[in-house]
Write a protein that binds this DNA or RNA. Structure first.
Length: 275
DNA sequence: ACGAGCGCCTGTCGGC
DNA sequence: TGCCGACAGGCGCTCG
């Protein structure tokens, strides 16, 4: 499910609260329960319970697609993978079928990690930096310039779509935002990164930022039962639009497989580059 | 360096 | 209705 905009939206809601959920900053952890062992990547269940109990939440943030829940001594790092979701609820509510791990708070609330497909992972770390060591730059941060991005692309003989999905190249983009970015940039998903002109690279960076920013403004995309609350799905130009007319030229959107991922594009607006 | 194939899991949907 | 395969917002691994 969630890519950068969805994780950012969840982080903001947990930090600031919204109509449905209160902010969790300042809450005191009285205990935890683990229902699926593999959800917890690190440390052991016993160490996790011992260490997290008694800590207070001091902040909520995001790095790439990782959600960061800052505690007094540690950082709770959560990767939602395909189907993970976080829910604030009453500790007295019966836990839902797919709750894999939850924290209990002094105020009678619970923060539950719900994850039907069990791909999600949670770490409790004194220092999360090593976990993020191989991640590429944040696409929305200013250190990444059009020239710098062109240099990064220029050094790679790789198709654009798999490269955008490579978290060590650029951090936070997933299948939806890769397709939407390439469409906005007018680039074919199978064009080679090294074939882009400086202008095309600049256009791609701007398109990525535009797609991600719009996604955040719309509170992310909600496609099925997994993640709710966003409406970016109503603004998709290519993703999940196979056979429907391109909004720019009317050509039916095509779906192909690139790097074993479903890939949507307009064959008229997104022509392959030379080389 | 790069792509393909597969494993990890459960749920939904379309075709027959 | 039931069965069966395809497919799903991700990522780590091995193998050429």
């Amino acid at each position: 499910m969630p890519e950068l905009p969805e994780v950012e939206t969840i982080a903001r809601h947990l930090r600031q609260g919204n109509a449905e959920t209160p902010a969790i900053v300042g809450w005191y952890i009285t205990g935890a329960e683990l229902r699926w062992e593999r959800t917890l990547a690190e440390p052991s269940p016993a160490d996790f319970l011992r260490r997290i109990t008694g800590q207070r939440i001091t902040g909520v943030g995001r790095r790439a697609k990782y959600l960061l829940i800052c505690l007094d001594q540690d950082t709770l790092v959560i990767h939602l993978r395909m189907s993970g979701d976080l829910r604030v609820e009453n500790a007295s509510d019966p836990p839902a079928l797919h709750h894999r791990l939850w924290l209990n708070f002094e105020n009678g609330s619970r923060l539950a990690f719900n994850d039907p497909r069990k791909f999600g992972r949670i770490w409790l770390l004194r220092d999360p930096a090593p976990l993020f060591a191989k991640l590429g730059p944040e696409p929305l941060e200013g250190q990444l310039t059009p020239d710098g991005f062109h240099a990064l692309l220029n050094g790679r003989r790789r198709q654009l779509k798999p490269l955008l999905l490579d978290q060590t190249f650029l951090a936070g983009i997933g299948n939806i935002y890769a397709d939407e970015s390439l469409h906005r940039a007018g680039l074919h998903p199978q064009s080679l990164a090294s074939s882009l002109s400086p202008e095309q690279s600049a256009r791609l960076l701007a398109a990525i930022r535009q797609a991600l920013t719009t996604g955040i403004e719309r509170n992310g995309a909600s496609i099925d039962w997994v993640y709710r609350g966003g409406d970016f799905q109503n603004y998709f130009q290519v993703y999940d639009r196979r056979g429907k007319p391109c909004y720019t030229c009317g050509t039916p959107i095509e779906r192909i497989t690139v790097g074993q991922r479903g890939t949507h594009y307009c064959p008229t607006c997104q022509r392959p580059t030379e080389g």
